[in-house]
Design a protein around this nucleic acid. Structure first.
Length: 470
RNA sequence: GGGUCUGUGGGGUAGCUUGGUAUCCUUCCAGCUUGGGGUGCUGGUGACUCCGGUUCAAAUCCGGACAGACCCA
């Protein structure tokens, strides 16, 4: 492996590209742009993230389903705005064997049009509602811009939850539940985020409104991690999803969706990583603890046995632990495990054996110390918990310092900007053009604010956020 | 959609102008050495994207395909 040569603060893009390769999260050599291979280490992070998502969705009575990948063109075209939003970026299957298909099929860019014809069959009466489903699948979008591992790809691993409700209010309460699910998942990744209602021109094609989940990165960048949509009856009408209400009348359901992708992995890399490599929160670290034995001539056997015992003790207690028994210098191992972002390193040598201790080093803040061997198992558990807590605290602190409130467009700082905007598209577009930023939207959760629109001067009592979108 | 450029061992590169033995670093493998922050030595495996053309001879020149990067709409 080559050295990390690029510093995160100097060239973020290069740094990111380098780190995902050095840490061996992905193999970018697959010969299709934007379709990368998940390597074992990267895939484990994704799988654990998926598991947390599954846990929360199951706990809120969502049912996991799995719909086909192919969608007939006839279904795909049922919702006019939806097709308009996606037609430039779907892959089409036009042939089967030697035959040209009468009706083309697209690879799902998202699954509304695959699921909703079937939902129309599943939903008959109000007692079938709410219908709460989700699936964890891959989806395909033909990106023409520069691709980037986990962040902008053409085959996207994601989860999507789709729900149907009797009323708009019930659908609204689903949106609120999604925020709770989101918060729990994000805690495991130690990622902070904004919840911003997107502008009319940026909402999901076909949605009534869209709330974006945005994570702040360096220098005023933001990365959209997910979105929560309220559809009202925009899809249930074209797909004819109706239920018979208590009074015997037929009504269209109100729908919501919530989705997040493999960007969660990319964002974990981008947000926590540093110049030494990855920094993984213990909850999603494939290896939480690595043991590096310090082997001195003549004492190899004794130290190795003690290291194996330590590994077994930790493993038994439920820690994901790895004993690095390769024949390499310890210093070289330290560098390698730091690149891979292992949260906690334990060192065990002759000196420690004599003193009844185990040395440790914490990845995210570089602190070092030692545990008593007798209490190491408990100490490791509480250290991992402490790391999660501290990483979350500092993450949210970073979010608050990533924002600058401005009252004019003169020399805006390189931060995520917060300002007054009247809500008119013409003013919004002008702000975007002049700052070369993207308006992310207005906070879903009301913030105390009062200012004038940066363009027309009209008063407003809600702030708008804008950032360099990645 | 229009244009510019690029493609050499697993990774990064030199060589291409002016055609003739493919360079160096790293990784990997073996052995010795070393061992609390990137040990050192010796040896080894491994490459010119593909198809066609020109030529005695092509990584090098020409044409095309494929893949990628960048710029413009």
């Amino acid at each position: 492996m080559d050295d990390m040569v690029v510093k995160k603060s100097e060239d973020f893009s290069e740094w990111y590209n380098e780190i995902v390769e050095l840490a061996n999260l992905t193999d970018k050599r697959y010969p299709i742009k934007g379709m990368n291979v998940w390597t074992p280490y990267g895939w484990k992070i994704m799988r654990m993230t998926d598991e947390f998502i599954r846990e929360e969705l199951d706990a809120t009575n969502h049912q996991e389903v799995c719909f086909p990948l192919l969608i007939p063109e006839t279904e795909f075209k049922k919702e006019a705005d939806h097709i308009k939003g996606f037609d430039s970026e779907v892959y089409w299957v036009t042939h089967a064997g030697l035959n040209e298909l009468d009706i083309r099929m697209c690879l799902r860019p998202t699954s509304e049009t695959a699921m909703y014809p079937i939902f129309a069959l599943w939903v008959r009466s109000h007692s079938d509602l709410p219908l709460k489903t989700y699936q964890i699948v891959n989806t395909f979008r033909y990106e023409t811009k520069m691709t980037r591992a986990f962040i902008r790809v053409r085959e996207i691993h994601f989860f999507e939850s789709h729900t149907c409700h009797t009323t708009e209010e019930d659908a609204q309460s689903q949106v609120e539940e999604d925020f709770v699910i989101l918060e729990k998942v994000m805690r495991h990744l130690a990622l902070p985020y904004f919840l911003l209602t997107r502008t009319e021109w940026d909402k999901f094609p076909g949605a009534y409104y869209t709330v974006g989940v945005d994570c702040p990165l360096l220098e005023g960048r933001s990365l959209q991690l997910g979105s929560i949509h309220h559809y009202r009856e925009n899809f249930s009408k074209p797909f004819d999803i109706k239920y018979e209400d208590v009074d015997g009348t037929l009504k269209h359901v109100h729908q919501t969706t919530f989705g997040m992708s493999e960007r969660l992995v990319g964002c974990t890399v981008a947000f926590h990583g540093d110049d030494k490599g990855l920094v993984l929160p213990p909850d999603v670290a494939p290896i939480q603890v690595v043991i590096v034995p310090i082997l001195a001539k003549g004492k190899v056997e004794e130290v190795m046995v003690a290291a194996q015992r330590l590994r077994d003790d930790l493993k038994k207690s439920g820690v994901r632990v790895h004993l690095d028994d390769k024949d390499e210098r310890p210093g070289s191992k330290f560098y390698n495990w730091e690149i891979k972002g292992v949260p906690l390193r334990l060192e065990l040598g002759q000196r420690d054996l004599a003193e009844g201790k185990v040395c440790f080093a914490v990845r995210h803040d570089g602190t070092k110390g030692s545990f008593l061997r007798a209490t190491t198992v408990e100490d490791v558990h509480s250290k991992l918990q402490e790391i999660m807590r501290v990483m979350n605290e500092s993450a949210w602190k970073r979010l608050s310092t990533a924002v600058a409130t401005i009252d004019s467009l003169e020399n805006p700082p390189k931060k995520i900007l917060r300002f007054g905007w009247c809500g008119e598209e013409s003013c919004g577009r002008e702000i975007e053009t002049r700052t070369e930023l993207k308006i992310l939207g207005t906070p879903y959760i009301k913030e105390a604010f009062h200012a004038k629109c940066l363009i027309c001067g009209k008063e407003t009592d809600k702030p708008t956020y804008a950032a360099r979108a990645m």
